[in-house]
Amino acid sequence: MRVQMEINGIRTESNTDATTLLSDFIREEAGLTGTHAGCDTSNCGACTVLLDGRVVKSCTVLAVQAAGRKVTTIEGLGDANDLSPVQYAFWKKHGLQCGFCTPGMIVSAYALLQRNPDPDEEEIRNALAGNLCRCTGYVKIVESVRYAAKLTREGKTPFRAAARRRKEGEIHGPPGESL
């Protein structure tokens, strides 16, 4: 069947089976592989995306259920030259190791800050309870989210300034380095 949705602001349309999961649609039809699948049972949260602004595990949603709606994936939050505060904070505070859970974790953290710009540790931990990370022990993830909240509240965007400087040839190296 024909399914159409808006993913990261881009209209995506495809012939797909009625049983296709949203996570598979995002990965296979839209070609956005930042959304990962790490379990069969909706435990891990590596597939977390926003559906009309709300956090969902995209492996528990059928693609047809997202038809006509707006989906935001990790790729929609920012790229290496235009990082969102949450992405930047995860990087600066070492909130990731292997990086597999990171996209889902960042999307959940982003959604938390949308609804609560100044969460305390308990609120952060509760908001991330649907996202498993096997590497970090969550300590630096919590630090990352607190830092992202601070940046957002203060309206600071060091990552954007750095991107500009890179464009102007002042910074070299991997995207985002030396911010």
Binding site: T102, G173, G176
Partner: peptide, 19 residues
């Protein structure tokens, strides 16, 4: 020092086998 490989992971552009 913060890690040099992180930009790809925080933007969902890492290349795991399934990607």
């Amino acid at each position: 020092m913060t890690r040099m490989e992180d930009p790809k992971f925080i933007t969902g552009t890492g290349k795991f086998i399934d990607d």
